[in-house]
């Protein structure tokens, strides 16, 4: 499923790299620990997190993730947005907490592990 489809279905706000919404999402990874994401997230995963500082962009870029969704109404810091624009990382926001957002993504067919 493409990012733009999820953005539309779940009413996500887009905060960076608007030109890259055709990116395909193959699965999801939810974590607020950067080291955990570095170790376990898979390429083309959509990353769900509460973390807003600029290090998230580096992590997403390094793991070649499909995008980042900040939950619970969090907004990215200015430096984070700038970095994301430069690295073409799509940052999205949602008012929902992790559990609900993941629940809805899961019902839309985004898996949390390889099947």
């Amino acid at each position: 499923m493409e990012l733009k489809e999820l953005i539309q279905q779940l009413n996500l706000g887009v905060r960076s790299a608007r030109g890259h919404l055709e990116r395909e999402v193959t699965g999801g990874y939810a974590s607020d620990l950067l080291s955990d994401v570095l170790a376990h997230a898979q390429e083309a995963n959509l990353w769900i997190t509460l973390q807003v500082h600029q290090n998230i962009v580096a992590v997403a870029s390094m793991k070649n993730l499909a995008g980042i969704v900040l939950v619970n109404g969090r907004e990215p810091e200015q430096e984070t947005v700038e970095k994301a624009e430069a690295e073409n990382i799509v940052i999205m926001v949602s008012a929902m907490p992790t559990f609900e957002l993941v629940g809805k993504l899961y019902s839309l067919g985004i898996p949390g592990m390889e099947r």
């Binding site: 607020d32 620990l33 950067l34 080291s35 509460l50 973390q51």
Partner: peptide, 8 residues
């Protein structure tokens, strides 16, 4: 500290 779940 962040890795311990605090300091956000």
């Amino acid at each position: 500290v962040r890795e311990l779940g605090f300091g956000a």
